[in-house]
């Protein structure tokens, strides 16, 4: 090169190099700046998870252990009394966390697996496959999902596996929509074209080129979807086609003890009994929403 370069070298070119943080540093940084609502949400979620995982050690009695005192009042041997068959409400609440959350998480994962794969594939192909998938999803979304789920569950039977599959498929339609929408923005990037030119297969482009770039909105959507799945399962259980007894579950616990509300004028604690599982459901959905809001706010770069 000629002399007027003044020692120009590509490696020393000015660039604003940001020092990269490790994942743990990033998480710690995020936590330090998190708003109180998010901290509250995270605390609640951690608490639920701990209860769910260590249920057998935390619960004073067994999940389906029956005592000869149905509808026992609060206090004494049974902190929150017993239900219509004489099972300890507290123990069932604790086991319920494990069952309901476990099934909801599995269902949401499955919904994302289905929705994301088809969504990205549709975004890449943009031909008959896209049309076929999008129109099928439209058809599924046109039917009210709770009624559809009720119908399918009465046809196939209310086993845990069926619940997971049916709700996952119904919910994956929403995941499909959002994945396709965000993936469309990434598909037009030159690096995807470069990968196609290189001769890469569909799977590689989906996993390596597109998925890493659409993660933030999907993670946020995961939290939101989890809430809906969780509520759907509780609703189905409340209607009697969800998780079947003797497995403890919050939705069916509300139904089983709902009758106690009418005794409010005699014993206020008895009337509160059906409120406990309901409150457990409400608190978790609120907590998850707080965390999701914070995450969305962070990743979208919105400032208020």
């Amino acid at each position: 090169m000629s002399s007027n370069d003044q020692g120009y070298s590509a490696a020393n070119e000015v660039s604003q190099i940001k020092s990269r943080r490790t994942l743990s540093e990033n998480i710690w940084r995020g936590l330090k700046t998190a708003p109180p609502t998010a901290i509250f949400g995270l605390t609640v979620i951690t608490f639920y998870l701990t209860v769910g995982i260590f249920a057998p050690f935390l619960a004073p009695y067994g999940e389906a252990e029956i005592f000869d005192m149905a509808y026992a009042p609060w206090g004494g041997d049974f902190l929150f009394g017993t239900d219509q068959l004489g099972r300890d409400i507290l123990s069932r609440l604790i086991y319920g966390a494990r069952n309901t959350i476990g099934i909801a998480v599995t269902t949401t994962f499955l919904a994302f697996l289905i929705g994301c794969s088809f969504g990205i594939a549709a975004a890449i192909s943009q031909n008959w496959l896209d049309h076929l998938l999008s129109r099928s999803v439209d058809v599924l979304m046109a039917i009210p999902s709770l009624i559809f789920a009720l119908m399918l569950l009465s046809i196939f039977g209310s086993t845990a596996i069926n619940i997971i599959f049916i709700i996952a498929v119904l919910d994956s339609t929403r995941v499909f929509r959002i994945t396709r929408a965000v993936a469309l923005n990434v598909v037009v990037m030159d690096y995807v074209e470069a990968a196609k030119l290189r001769g890469e297969g569909l799977g590689w482009i989906m996993r390596k080129e597109i998925l890493p770039n659409i993660m933030p909105p999907l993670v946020a959507e995961f939290g939101l979807r989890f809430c809906f799945v969780f509520l759907t399962i509780a609703a189905l259980s409340f209607l009697g086609v969800g998780i079947q007894p003797p497995t403890a579950d919050w939705g069916s616990m509300v139904r089983e003890t709902a009758g106690l509300i009418q005794f409010a004028e005699y014993d206020i604690t008895a009337a509160l009994t059906p409120m406990l599982p309901a409150a457990a459901i409400a608190l978790l959905t609120v907590a998850v929403n707080f965390v999701v809001d914070w995450f969305l706010h962070k990743t979208s770069g919105l400032k208020d």
């Binding site: 990037m189 030159d190 690096y191 470069a194 390596k208 080129e209 890493p212 770039n213």
Partner: peptide, 8 residues
């Protein structure tokens, strides 16, 4: 910028 995947 757009020719390289920002995550690679």
């Amino acid at each position: 910028d757009t020719a390289m995947n920002p995550r690679h």
